[in-house]
């Protein structure tokens, strides 16, 4: 009888999930699996016929200097983005939570960039970097701004980072705020009574308790950092040359521009997928272990 009910409950669960599951299978799982198949072919996206080439596409990647350059750039970007975005989001979250007034308004303001598409955000910043900044440099003599913010790879790395943090921080901030609100106030009070200053309270009491939020935020930033596309595409287009090209842009250009090698570019996506999978798995296992240690 009990088993029968269990079976029914499982069936019902499955039925409830079915619409979402169907969409997921058709639009995510099936393309992903067929993508692996295409990565073993030399399809160019146009010809009705193509050949099976085995792992030739994967071998080719070894000598593809542009791909490695974009991978190097992406790694550098991810490292900087994860740290900067999370630190800024946490600072904002703590600052807003410690205020008495205007909390709602400030939350809305900082969350707002997240509500516009990053393509539009990118173009807005494009205007700032190419027009406003030069206006300030020329008319107000703020000469430290007089650099090629989207053209010189040394500076455009920072402009890309600024724009992507601007877009991501609001979202992360909300997660951190939720985490902060989950910290029991009696613990904070107790630490105050024990003579902790604000920083000590934060570091020794609050910080360990918001680790679950940090796990989510780091996971999200890692994941989206590796797939960065829209910000770079609108800001520098990957240029000058391929100096600020991320892996996602490299894949896009391989498929839709130049040689239009769909097979080869899906092979590159597979490699990117494996890298993201590996990195996030390691991150999750480390950070979740820390959570359990508490």
């Amino acid at each position: 009888m009990n088993r029968e009910m269990q079976r029914k409950a499982n069936l019902m669960l499955l039925l409830f999930c079915l619409p979402a599951l169907t969409v997921y299978i058709i639009f995510k799982l099936f393309p992903a699996i067929s993508g692996f198949y295409y990565s073993l072919t030399n399809w160019n996206g146009l010809n009705p016929t193509f050949d099976f080439v085995g792992f030739a596409n994967y071998q080719k990647m070894a000598s593809d200097s542009d791909f490695w350059r974009s991978l190097g750039f992406t790694a550098k970007y991810v490292a900087a983005f994860v740290v900067m975005a999370n630190v800024m989001a946490l600072i904002l979250a703590v600052a807003i939570e410690s205020r008495r007034h205007l909390r709602g308004a400030l939350r809305t303001i900082f969350y707002m960039p997240n509500m516009i598409s990053m393509v539009i955000g990118g173009y807005m910043w494009m205007f700032i970097f190419t027009k406003v900044v030069y206006y300030l440099a020329d008319n107000w003599h703020w000469t430290f701004l007089d650099h090629s913010w989207t053209g010189d790879p040394n500076y455009s790395f920072w402009s890309i980072l600024i724009v992507s943090c601007w877009g991501a921080v609001g979202y992360l901030m909300i997660i951190y705020i939720a985490g902060l609100q989950g910290v029991p106030s009696d613990l904070k009070e107790a630490s105050k009574l024990d003579g902790c200053n604000s920083f000590q309270t934060f570091w020794y009491v609050v910080r360990p308790l918001i680790r679950p939020a940090a796990t989510i935020c780091v996971f999200w930033t890692l994941n989206s950092g590796f797939q960065v596309f829209d910000v770079i595409y609108t800001l520098t287009g990957g240029g000058p040359g391929t100096a600020t090209q991320s892996v996602a842009i490299n894949i896009y250009e391989e498929a839709f521009k130049g040689n239009t090698r769909f097979g080869y570019s899906t092979a590159k996506s597979m490699v990117l997928f494996l890298i993201v999978l590996l990195v996030t798995l390691v991150q999750l296992s480390i950070m979740q272990k820390q959570e359990e240690d508490l």
Binding site: G151, P153, G239, P240, G241, A243, E253, K257, G258, N259
Partner: peptide, 21 residues
């Protein structure tokens, strides 16, 4: 010319202008 070639020419000229190539 193959479009991969024209694409690359443009990209390299950007870098040539920036004196990185």
């Amino acid at each position: 010319l193959p479009s991969a070639v024209t694409d690359k020419q443009g990209k390299l000229l950007q870098e040539y202008y920036q004196k990185t190539v």
